[in-house]
Amino acid sequence: MRMLALHLAVLAGVAALQFVLPAYHHTNAARILVLATYAIGFNIAFGYTGLLSLGHALFFAGGMYATGLLVDQGGWQPWAALLAGPAAGGVLAAGVGLLALRTAGPAFMIVTLMFAQAFHLAILYWGRFTGGDEGFTLSGAARRLGPFDLADPATRYGAAFLLFAAAMLGCLALVRSRTGRVLIAVRENEERTRMLGYDPFRAKLLALVLSGLLSGAAGATYGLMFGYVGGSFAAIQYSILPLIWVLLGGAGTVLGPLLGTALLFYLIDWASSVTTASQFVVGAVLILLVLFAPRGLLGLLRERGLRSLP
């Protein structure tokens, strides 16, 4: 109960933030919420189920392109196209999962990486439709969900918040459910889980599909919110980023993804304002952080007392 209250308080805080933040940080917060949703999706596979994928950009960009192409070239209504995003993420994850989950550990990392790389190359290759590396912009009409215009800052924040809140509460419900405990059991000891009568393959596939679904939803929302769909979101960098966010915040924690995403975002923002050698500062801080909290910030908190943190 106390934990539920904590998470609701965080959500309330995030919701209230929009009224006090100046314009620049207001937009940043909206970005962070959507990217944190992506991180939550990644965390379900990686943090809770132990599936270290290096190919999540496939699901994020897959959702972004599904929505973007349908609304831009398919003539779909924006809300319908928006729903196609998570669907695409989920379907792609199911497809990848059916093949990739035959492997584990480093082989799983490579297989997921390869599928994502193939997708990235395909986006460049079929540039006539996808715009290749340049991508394409979405018109104002493509970004209006009924009466809600995603180009409007307050609406955009609201949409980002709703997406994030749904993802976070969904994640919280999942990890406290029986299914969630099976996922964690698979992470801890797959053989034992099998002997207890569960099917680890099914559990892992479920985790990956949920993960892909959230990633696709985040990608689709991001595209509509900022009016741009581009190949760089399918590049390997966008598979590595959620890993960094989740590890910084604390893998296998519900709030870790938000914390990690916000932390890295503002770390880069701050570093580039104090020095032109900003990557140096970012690198050094990452190393210091990991020396100080090898299991992420919330992982540290969990070790230092807050054991019940989900």
């Binding site: 890993l243 050698a277 990557q279 690198g283 990452l286 190393i287 952080l289």
Partner: peptide, 26 residues
């Protein structure tokens, strides 16, 4: 110092990557 913990090592070597890249750029 990280006791070669695989996940922490990933972050640490990503940090190293940034530092080395920036050093080369500068």
């Amino acid at each position: 110092r990280l006791a070669y913990e695989p996940e922490a090592t990933i972050i640490a070597t990503i940090g190293l990557l940034y530092i080395l890249q920036q050093a080369a750029l500068t």
